[in-house]
């Protein structure tokens, strides 16, 4: 079975829109990075093949990201890169101001060739303070987060039961985990999944 890394490598070598030509980067190109096996990361230390931060600008297929620790990251999106923003999306959905986590392969020049980019993804736990048909008010570590139900996107998973778009089983004061997409510079989140223990 081919690994995702193999598929990405093929995508890079295959060229196409959004892929920088190998000849432009020589041995520093993403194809070279994907061809190598990532070394094991020392537990407890930063993973060089991972990045977090907010998008400052977008130039062609490259995201310029300022990490929350004030370290800049240059993240290249290639044909095989998966992007998530409340669900699978295209590269055109990445916007300046979006927060992100990205995993890929760090190239010798410091650029991250991305296998996956999760835009604005949050995974927060808290208890429900109020609930309507369209919103959940979540108390997350003493801060209120307004979570929006998005038609066709939001689902609830009650323990091992299949995901359901019916969120009516959720109750005030119940503790839940909400996976969703943050609305930048607000305390609001669009709901992808509500995990409920019962």
């Amino acid at each position: 079975m081919r690994s995702r890394r193999d598929l990405l490598k093929s995508a890079v070598l295959g060229g196409g829109a959004g892929v920088v030509a190998a000849t432009a980067l020589g041995s520093l190109g993403p194809e070279a990075a994907f061809a190598t096996t990532a070394p094991a990361i020392e537990p407890g230390t930063p993973d060089p093949n991972f990045a977090e931060g907010r998008i400052r600008s977008i130039k062609e297929n490259t995201l310029l990201v300022l990490g929350s620790n004030m370290v800049f990251h240059t993240i290249r999106v290639v044909d095989g890169t998966s992007l998530w923003k409340l669900g699978p999306v295209g590269f055109d959905q990445a916007k300046p101001g979006d927060g992100l986590y990205a995993r890929g392969v760090r190239m010798p020049d410091g650029m991250l060739a991305a296998e996956a980019v999760w835009l604005n993804i949050v995974n927060i736990k808290g208890h429900i303070k109020n609930i309507t048909s369209q919103t959940i008010h979540l108390d997350h570590n003493g801060h209120e987060v307004l979570c929006h139900v998005v038609a066709g996107k939001s689902v609830a998973i009650h323990s091992e039961s299949p995901a359901t778009s019916d969120l009516s089983m959720l109750k005030v004061s119940q503790h839940v985990q909400i996976l969703g997409a943050w609305r930048p510079d607000t305390n609001e989140v669009d709901i992808a999944t509500v995990f409920s223990p019962h």
């Binding site: 993973d47 998530w84 986590y101 995993r103 999760w118 993804i121 998973i157």
Partner: peptide, 15 residues
């Protein structure tokens, strides 16, 4: 952490 979880599953799986 997100760095660790994303080594074994997509962050979008959540749990």
């Amino acid at each position: 952490t997100p760095a660790a979880y994303s080594q074994i599953a997509s962050l979008s799986t959540g749990l």
